[in-house]
Design a protein around this nucleic acid. Structure first.
Length: 121
RNA sequence: UUAGAAGAUCGGAUGGCUGCGGCAGCAAUGUCGAGGAAAGUCCGGGCUUCAUGGAAAAACGGUGCCGGCUAACGGCCGGGGGGCGAGAGCCUACGGACAGUGCAACAGAGAGCAAACCGCCUAUUUAUAGGUAAGGGUGAAAGGGUGCGGUAAGAGCGCACCGCGUGACCGGUAACGGAAGCGGCAUGGUAAACCCCACCGGAAGCAAGACCGAAUAGGAACACAUUUACGCGCUUUUCCACGCUGUGUUCGGGUUGGUCGCUAGAGCGUAUUGGUAACGAUACGCGGAGAUGAAUAGCCAUCGCCCCUUUUGGGGAGACAGAACCCGGCUUACAGAUCUUCUUAUACU
């Protein structure tokens, strides 16, 4: 089920704060137990991905880092095949992200992507 | 063995598959990759920039027994005083109250150059006057304590012992300790209240700052000429020195992106050696994260740890917590494990 190295290279990371804000404003959003996904179209035709774990989720920096790492691991497995070109994705961590089993977390992401695709039509 | 005290160390290990960041390499690949507190940002430095340089004073902030260590400190080590404990030990903002100002509710007669409510004593007389601080009462606190003498009753009024003040002299680098003698006892507490004294301190921080490439004011540098004065020059004042003006030429700033700053530093380890110790000296060895929406992850196996039942076995937990320019400390958090030294009680010998 692991994505190949080539596929993972197609993912570009979102770094600017302004990009995060525009995606959050104009994009669509779907919530699951393990994580939240936000999607918006972009102009350059690539798949782009960003991660957000705020201090609201957990005050400990160690736990926030671990949540971000798990989100990154899930995204690396699912998104190269599950995501579409020309779209921006933001994965938002939740308290459940820390303790949910890995397979369930993957299912959460797949479910969110499916729902968002239906919603777009 | 019981109950403690002090100090130090560790903070799971190994491997596989799929991945991440730095470096090397054309590539394959190789190699390195979080902590004892990385935390809080409370001190002290290095480094960088800003202000024209120096001296003195004031203001503001900090430190506060003594000696030593250190680049430095509010840190550490050793010592002294005071307090706590049976002890090993632990705690300690621990300079100054004859420089000045202030503060202490209520109660009480009286609370800071003491006072006289009840009482006691004396006189005249049945209410005053004087003496007194033993006893009572109030209070957090009532101006030495006990005993004897003394007296009208009393009182350091006198004496002894204790306490207090002062203290020749002795020990110690010092803080301080000991102490003959003298003083009849007085100048209560509070300075994490203002304050005084001694010592220390310019300010802001790697989003500092430097460079490169792209669009507008103040401006900056260089050359020449000229004037020396009001005022201005990064807390204020004073003193001394210095600068300021005009013209021309050249360059070009607030923001964003990239590169550098960026990790070898008061570095770590071992041995010898000086020192009670903190720490210093010498020799040899080591080379160890540098990200910038920010790298250590996901899954699994074995060993170890804890709990349950015990024949095999099954299940569970894994603390506090994530480098962001770098060091030296402090403070706070921490499952569990190990080692060393010491005290106490009991037993054994």
């Amino acid at each position: 089920m692991h994505a190949s190295k080539e596929q993972q290279d197609s993912l570009i990371q979102i770094k600017k704060r302004s990009d995060f804000l525009t995606i959050q404003n104009k994009g669509r959003k779907w919530v699951s137990h393990g994580l939240i996904v936000q999607v918006a179209e972009n102009e350059n035709g690539h798949k782009r991905i960003g991660y957000t774990v705020s201090k609201k989720v957990d005050k400990s920096a160690v736990k926030r880092n671990r949540i971000k790492r798990r989100l990154r691991a899930v995204a690396a497995d699912i998104l190269p095949t599950g995501a579409k070109d020309g779209q921006d994705y933001i994965l938002v961590g939740r308290p459940q992200t820390l303790i949910r089993p890995y397979e369930t977390l993957c299912d959460d992401l797949r479910w969110c992507l499916k729902k968002l695709e239906l919603d777009a039509q």
